[in-house]
């Protein structure tokens, strides 16, 4: 559908949250928690911090929970009975104030969960989620959305994208049918957009250091350059923090909890950066060195995903670099990869 432009007055945001809540939907928004900002459920707009640069955790938890029940089982008499979780009970949810990188990340996650076999858990959550994005007025030195085909005002993945204009009011771009349905909850708040509303001047300036295609080709070309990968990963601890905060990382483990008579089967976030991720039962490990694991992380996002799922697996949010305890910086490493002579 063609994008429709409306004006949402700054004081109208509170009313919008009230209307959404009144319609029985949950609202999640960035909330200040001490030194960090994280997505959390809110009852009123006063709880939200819309001036944030980046949350520590991404909002992927809403679509792909850190720990999710995929089965429950119970022995009754001699027989084992299994049951699916009840996904019909999931609440309709609106995430408000998500930046464009995170909104675009939903497409990458979705590609993994639906490229082949359809993952009912992800799909049920996605169906109930409406994304009201918020353009970025400021970035920091870790952001590189412009280098991965996005930008501080891209509409990709948002159902509605808000941009705060110089006046403090919001330009609302209604991108999808889901966005339109949300407007219907409070149509009186969405005023006609003034003809001269200038979105571009309200956006952060994010430098474009490379293209994602270049990064992918270069990583592939230098695949066998062990010195490069081992050098970059020399200080990596294999702690997995980068994968946990990443909005597109989708590797998971499956584990049982309970007893052999009654319990649940869970899927939990995992990381290709952990040494045990690939270890065979014999003890043989196909990716023995941290350099090979770091290379896997980059190759998967910049080469394998585009090749197999037709999407890139990095949206340039910079979270992995901010979270890394030893200052691995994906943007700097990608620049290094592009510059280094082979």
């Amino acid at each position: 559908m063609e994008i429709e432009r409306r004006l949402l007055k700054k004081e109208a945001l509170a009313g919008l949250v009230e209307k959404i809540n009144a319609a029985g939907r949950k609202v999640h928004a960035p909330v200040c928690e001490g030194a960090r900002v994280e997505f959390a459920p809110i009852d009123s707009i006063a709880e939200a911090d819309l001036g944030y640069v980046q949350t520590t955790q991404s909002a992927k938890n809403l679509l792909f929970p850190r720990v999710e029940r995929i089965l429950s089982f119970k022995r009754r008499g001699g027989a084992m009975e299994t049951a699916d979780p009840d996904l019909s009970a999931l609440p309709e949810t609106v995430v408000l104030g998500m930046h464009p990188c995170d909104a675009a990340a939903i497409g990458s996650l979705g590609a993994i969960f639906t490229w082949d076999t359809q993952d009912a858990f992800f799909k049920a959550r996605l169906e109930k989620l409406t994304v009201v994005g918020l353009s970025c007025a400021a970035g920091d030195e870790y952001c590189f959305c412009a280098s991965v085909g996005l930008g501080p005002g891209s509409t990709e993945g948002s159902d509605i994208l808000l941009t705060r204009l110089a006046s403090g009011d919001f330009l609302a771009e209604i991108v999808t049918a889901k966005g339109k349905a949300l407007v219907e909850l409070a149509p009186e708040l969405f005023l006609p957009a003034p003809a001269g509303a200038d979105k571009d001047s309200a956006l952060a300036r994010i430098e474009k250091s490379f293209t994602r295609e270049e990064a992918g080709e270069r990583a592939k070309a230098r695949f066998d350059d062990d010195a490069l990968w081992d050098g970059q990963a020399l200080r990596c601890l294999g702690c997995g923090a980068c994968a946990y905060v990443c909005p597109t990382c989708a590797c998971f483990d499956i584990q049982d909890e309970g007893t052999t008579s009654r319990g649940v089967r869970l899927r939990c976030w995992d990381s290709c950066g952990f040494p045990a991720f690939t270890i065979h039962t014999s003890g043989h490990n196909p990716r023995e060195e941290q350099g090979a694991r770091w290379r896997q992380r980059l190759m998967h996002k910049f080469s394998y995903m585009p090749e197999r799922q037709d999407v890139f697996g990095c949206v340039g949010c910079g979270r992995c670099s901010r979270a890394c305890p030893v200052d691995m910086n994906i943007k700097e490493h990608l620049i290094d990869l592009l510059e280094a002579k082979s």
Partner: peptide
């Protein structure tokens, strides 16, 4: 090939070698 697997259906990422999913 017997790369370690979890999902068996090309999602969990564990068996990924190059662009290939060993499970799929």
């Amino acid at each position: 090939l017997e790369n370690r697997m979890k999902c068996g259906i090309g999602k969990c990422g564990r068996c990924n070698v190059g662009p290939v999913f060993v499970c799929k």
